[in-house]
């Protein structure tokens, strides 16, 4: 539910958290990202950093430049100035990201978990089943049938938290318990209402349904498309997963290795929340691909 007024809470002596509501709707994230952008543009003194969550924004500040009450008042004014989320236009690039769904590497990872940690179904079967999909092929159609919205970036450097924009492609999946001890780099995971891309090989709790040969975190500086810190995506970017087969995976992997891969970004449009909402209202939300 969206709160009538944004709520403010301290995080120690250097942080202030602004919350717009208590669920995970895209509307709340649009507001959080809108406030992040408005805060940056305001050039308020003492703002050190902004860190968006699903429905909140954590603002880091320098108390020698702005007091907590003053910051709260300024942020309240900026939040009011956003107006309804329908008025928001957010800078949003679209990335086409090749993915081999149902790939051998995540399958081997699940097999290893089954052998060493706990019995469980093969992740794509499990996710298809809990979402009432016919089979894993429909899971692939569903997951690749929409643009995904970058809700925020982080946890570890460069890790994107993504959410499908088309309600017909919404999936929900319980996370691993206990967590996996390792996950291959590039694995595509789904957990709760979100999707993520494992930037590096790491432990994890999302169900893994595919793998991309393309790096989304690369601090080496080989590719100019990355920002200075080696992070590919920004909050409010969109990702379209493009299904590929084994041969294409191997080809792209080679081009990544020799540094000749062309990242496929589209950067000519902004994301209009009202246009999006108008489109969503025309859809049959129970529909599936």
């Amino acid at each position: 539910m969206k709160f009538d007024e944004p709520r403010f809470a301290p995080g120690g002596d250097q942080y202030l958290q602004v919350s717009f509501g208590d669920d995970a709707t895209l509307e709340l994230n649009f507001l959080a990202l809108g406030l992040a952008s408005a805060t940056r543009e305001s050039e308020l003194p003492g703002i050190v950093d902004t860190n968006p969550g699903y429905n909140s924004l954590l603002v880091e500040y320098d108390a020698d430049a702005i007091s907590f009450p003053d910051l709260e008042r300024e942020l309240r004014a900026l939040a009011d100035g956003l107006g309804p989320s329908d008025d928001l236009e957010l800078q949003s690039r679209l990335l086409y990201l090749p993915v081999m769904y149902l790939d051998p590497w995540t399958r081997a990872c699940v097999d290893d978990y089954r052998e060493k940690i706990a019995e469980r179904e093969y992740d794509p079967d499990f996710v298809a089943q809990v979402n009432g999909l016919e089979d894993v092929q429909q899971l692939v159609r569903t997951h690749s049938g929409t643009e995904h919205w970058a809700v925020t970036i982080g946890s570890i450097p460069g890790l994107p938290l993504l959410r499908p924009l088309d309600p017909r492609c919404a999936i929900y999946s319980p996370k691993y318990n206990p967590a996996r001890t390792w996950t291959p780099q590039g694995a595509i995971g789904v957990g709760g209402p979100s999707t993520s891309i494992y930037t590096v090989a790491s432990p994890g709790g999302y169900n893994i349904i595919g793998r991309t040969p393309v790096l989304v975190f690369d601090p080496s500086g080989r590719y100019s498309v990355f920002n200075e810190g080696g992070v590919l995506l920004r909050p409010a970017d969109r990702v379209k997963f493009v299904p590929i087969g084994l041969e294409e995976f191997a080809y792209i992997e080679r081009r990544m290795q020799d540094g000749t891969y062309e990242y496929n970004f589209v950067g000519y449009d902004t994301f209009s929340v009202s246009a999006y909402n108008t489109w969503v209202a025309t859809l049959d939300h129970e529909g599936r691909f």
Partner: peptide
């Protein structure tokens, strides 16, 4: 008493930014 998108445990909440020192 919270939505399922928060997660199963009482300590779970919808993903949010963490302060250093949290």
């Amino acid at each position: 008493d919270k939505g399922p998108e928060n997660g199963d445990d009482p300590s779970n909440i919808i993903d949010h930014g963490y302060p250093v020192g949290g």
